Amino acid sequence: MLHGAPPEFVRRALDDADPLVGTAGFAGALPSDRDDADETLVRDVLGRYPLFVDEETGEWTPSPTGLANARSFPAGHVRRPGDAELERVWTLPDPVPFADEQTAVAELRTAVRDGVDAAASAASDDPDMEVAVAFSGGVDSAVVASGLDAAGIDAPLYAGGFPGSHDLDAARSAAYAMDRELRVVEFTVGDVERAVPRVARAIDRPDAMAVQIALPLYLVAERAASDGYTHLAVGQGADELFGGYAKVARAPEDPRVDADTVRGARDEMLATLPDQLERDVLALRAAGVEPVAPLLHDRVVETALRLPGDALVDDRGERKRALRLAAREFVPDRVAFREKKAVQYGSLAARELDRLAREAGFKRRMDDHVTEYVRSRIDE
């Protein structure tokens, strides 16, 4: 089964070796035109849908939990019928940047609208699709929420975090500025303790950082699912596409990137997206919802790749410059230009997971004590 896009789109992408043919990602088995022929396994260039293959049997599933010897199928690759080896078919293009900021912002504004409208159209066409929004109060989720609302999709906003956390404060403030109601999911230590083994098993990773990031997503999605929502709209991909990381803004001085330009550092972050999206999608599915990521639509990606360095990070160090300017059509300025903490810190999930690890006897003097705690919970 092919997930994420109609077969004709994927066939065109294969025929033209075009990574951005107008989808929101795809993965799975592309049916053959002949009834007696085997299927071709595919995964899009950004890895927006997970895909796993058993190294011994060749079986595949969208989740690693169903396979004995699962490995992630790499993004941008295909496995054709009868071939044991994978073939890289798609890579992201390196287009000429826009000549000026005004053009860049106008094109990006249109692209973002197109990406959100595509998600809204899918929701309108499927009577069983009920969409909520994972809302942090930052520009990414705010643009998604506002765009869906403008397109006629009644998608309530869900914000998660521990009481007093930055994320809950930011979400309340942004929802007020946007004149939207907010459904608050206040985490407890018991929630985190309960969710740790479920999340770690679902994403098939025990490392502390992966679990810290996935936990807030899982807990918010779990609440939305319990309220009857089948899909959760997220702002995933914006930091990678639009220069949201401090290490991108500091290129080439920051030792965490190899590139000597802001655009080059942004491209390094894009290369991490398949791994990150795999984690997030698996966590959301474990909670009972499917993700909707309008800012990762091909139209948005194609436009983001043409942003010049100063549209990613301006000369004052403001990150996601073009996105913030484009967002002014969708949200108030105080939301468009708000700085945001990473979800694991803004929600206080990382702090409480560290506390649980220490209370369980995994002290900070140990090597990677939180990961060891997570491992112990998986083995229970």
Rank of each mutant, 00 (worst) to 15 (best):
V42Y: 03
A111P: 03
Y373I: 05
L67K: 07
G361M: 12
E85P: 03
L356E: 07
P274W: 04
V199F: 05
Y158D: 05
V10C: 05
H297V: 05
F337Q: 09
L67F: 01
V211W: 02
A171H: 11
Q212F: 01
A349R: 06
L217W: 10
G190M: 01
V199H: 03
L148D: 12
E222R: 15
E268A: 10
A249S: 14
D239G: 09
K247V: 10
A214Y: 05
I203N: 08
D83L: 13
P74E: 06
A5H: 05
A171M: 11
D227R: 01
T61D: 12
L46E: 00
Y229E: 13
A13I: 02
P163K: 04
Q212T: 00
L356N: 08
L284E: 14
V300D: 01
G138N: 11
Y49D: 10
L51N: 06
R12W: 03
Q276K: 14
E85K: 11
V184I: 13
V199D: 05
V42P: 00
A357S: 13
L108R: 04
Y245N: 04
E268R: 05
L307P: 04
P31S: 13
K341H: 15
A104C: 14
L356W: 06
V189Q: 12
A210N: 10
Q344L: 10
R355M: 08
V196L: 01
R328D: 09
D125Y: 00
R334I: 10
R263F: 02
D254E: 04
A200L: 07
G58M: 06
A350S: 11
A327L: 02
A170C: 07
A322R: 01
R316I: 09
E130G: 07
R113K: 02
R12S: 06
T91M: 10
G76H: 01
P163S: 12
D227T: 00
A202N: 02
L284V: 13
H77I: 01
V116Q: 06
Y373H: 13
R324A: 02
Q276S: 09
Y176V: 15
L323V: 07
R321L: 00
D258H: 15
T371F: 09
V143Q: 09
A342W: 03
F337C: 07
L348R: 14
L312E: 04
D267E: 14
R365Y: 15
R319D: 07
D94G: 13
V96H: 14
R266Q: 15
L323W: 00
P7W: 01
R201I: 08
G152P: 02
D167P: 06
A17M: 08
L148Y: 09
A271T: 12
P291W: 00
V257E: 04
D267C: 07
D379E: 12
T65G: 14
L232R: 11
G4N: 13
A195W: 02
T57W: 08
S165V: 08
L108C: 03
D36N: 11
L282A: 01
A24M: 03
S146R: 12
A195C: 06
V234H: 11
D38A: 14
R285Y: 04
L41T: 09
P19K: 07
G82S: 09
D310A: 10
D33C: 00
E290Y: 06
L295K: 07
A132C: 13
L307W: 03
A29M: 08
A159K: 06
L41C: 04
R198E: 14
